[in-house]
Design a protein around this nucleic acid. Structure first.
Lengths: 332, 332
DNA sequence: CTTGACAATCGTAACGTTACGATTGCATCC
DNA sequence: GGATGCAATCGTAACGTTACGATTGTCAAG
């Protein structure tokens, strides 16, 4: 591992001049800059991360707090394109992305505090926003740059990137109504999180417009595994008045529901209609007629990094808020 | 952000003593240790990562090099449990895990060299091993601790965790033969990688045992998206003598194949039989009779971290090599 | 010839941590 | 009472980097 000192020694220059030359400092003679860069290139000099971080306070690291809904089960395929989008964008922006996994046992606030105290990151990507999320105030107060994947219902302005879950659920419900459905079941993910609240809101708006009262028993919470989705939908199918429409939370919810349906020899398209949100295009490869909202989650990942990057560069600038719309494909 | 100096000032001790006290140094008076720890606790002291790293050379960071087969498409669901297993285990071991994404444009060797030169990681997790993989020698020569996800055909001993792809493909092929299949198609992932070579080897062994000559046109390379798998299988189904058995590379390959089958009104179970490897249990929720090899990929991720951790702790110790077997479920 | 301006380079200190050797105080021993 | 040993603590230097102010040399203007 080479350092500035070695380059300086080789050229009989001071460490200072070498340091400046490598960042094209105007005080350094152009010819010297060229010589320094030539040697740096030749010996494969790469700045030492920790020396830089210690001196400047900039760590060139972003941390994504990654919540796992369960310890063992697959919980949302969305995470795959999200991670791919984030890691690739972070790398291209010159940051390394550290992933801090949390289980349901972990306190979300404590996870953030830990990152704050450790001081080993320039910025945080937080997800799974809840109503009145206390992490926002905490991070703003401490001046730690961050971006949230998801909005919340605070007065405070803060940077976020979100999916328009309200619109997606509204449109999904409307599409099901267009098919003639009136008893429409809705899958929600983690109870209490903002994404689910928005879905519920969009669903409620569509139902209200159509004058259909909401039947709470049609709303499924905690549908973040194929198993839970299948069991929930299976119970409903046994009712005397089963739902005729279903809005799934995501690909896994869809797979679970299709599984329950298939076991009874049913398929979506005639008696029952299904729509879902999809971030992997996986639903398009299933042998079933389903309406799909595609959302560009890799794009969300890239945007999160981009917003966080500008936030780190200018922590007191205006906050960016970005909303990704879903694109509906009726799947006929 | 508090540091040792502040704690030292508060207790009128030297920084040295505080540093030692926090790691229970035997030279420090027990009562002093208690006082120091009490203050550290109260002010929320967390050691500064970069100061520590600069001084000791230990970064407490592991880096996983994460290859993306394509820039845009979902390429293997295996990555999700792998990342979850790795990140969680790394965190529990006191390391942070950095993910370095690479695209097909990136040179794998250069990616490793970059990590070596940057010196900002204690150890590397490399994947997608190829025949005679030059990264192994490079890392061994430079003394950088690492662990590979996958074996390769080198004489050199090096630590790895792998899935027994040879056995899985062998057993998959045998199972298909038990169903009466003789024309058996095989899906392989990245051309040239070792996992695919092992699959091919296991397939070849089973075919040889059964005395069936290998038809190269039944072997599909580059089947790492649902799209490519569907297109490939669709072409085969149009033949006058289509395959009667198919061994899929993974869940996505399976989805693609089922899609192609479904469009022709066919389903696995009678004319054609399908087996696949699965790391998400997703195939069990599909409305199709397929044999499945389950592999505990989250366990692989945890094991990778565990092996790397012991490698970092003792870089010249014996190399651990771990093989994960698949568990077959005929899916009747 | 002196002064001033300017370009180019240098030296020192500091970020927070740990390793090493030095120092202090105190009891014990001959 | 001075030497010895030991426990507890301290001071300094170093890891690699950057920021700041200082220093050198050159050249033109007065």
């Amino acid at each position: 591992m080479t350092n500035l000192k070695q380059i300086a020694a080789e050229l009989s220059l001071s460490v200072t001049t070498v340091s400046r030359a490598l960042k094209d400092g105007p005080e350094v003679h152009p010819a010297t800059i060229a010589r320094v860069k030539e040697v740096a290139q030749r010996v494969g000099y790469v700045p030492n991360h920790h020396g830089f971080a210690l001196k400047t306070g900039r760590t060139l690291t972003m941390t994504a707090i990654y919540p796992m809904e369960t310890k063992d089960h697959l919980s949302d395929l969305l995470k795959l394109p999200l991670i791919e989008g984030m890691t690739l964008a972070a790398r291209q922006a010159g940051y390394s992305l550290s992933i801090y996994s949390t289980t349901p046992d972990d306190d979300p606030i404590e996870s953030v505090q830990r990152q704050l105290q450790a001081g080993s990151t320039d910025g945080l990507i937080i997800t799974r926003m809840v109503s009145g999320d206390p992490r926002v105030k905490l991070l703003l107060d401490r001046g730690m740059p961050f971006v949230a994947f998801g909005r919340t219902d605070l007065d405070t302005a803060y940077p976020y990137v979100d999916i328009d879950n309200e619109q997606i659920a509204y449109e999904a419900t409307r599409r099901l109504m267009d098919k003639g459905c009136r008893r429409i079941a809705l899958q929600l993910l983690v109870p209490g999180d903002q994404a689910s609240a928005m879905r519920l809101s969009g669903y409620g708006r569509a139902m209200a417009e159509a004058g259909i009262p909401i039947d709470q028993s049609l709303i499924g919470h905690g549908m973040f595994t194929m198993e839970s989705s299948a069991a929930w939908f299976d119970r409903m199918l046994a009712w005397s008045d089963p739902p005729t429409g279903l809005a799934c939370a995501n690909e896994l919810g869809l797979l679970g529901a299709l599984h329950a349906l298939g076991r009874r020899g049913l398929a979506p398209g005639s008696d029952i209609h299904i729509v879902t949100r999809d971030s992997t295009r996986l639903s398009r490869f299933l042998p079933a007629k389903i309406g799909v909202h595609f959302v560009d989650i890799a794009g969300v990942g890239r945007k999160l990094v981009e917003v966080l990057e500008s936030r780190i560069a200018n922590p007191i600038g205006p906050v960016a808020t970005v909303l990704f719309k879903g694109e509906f494909d009726p799947g006929e």
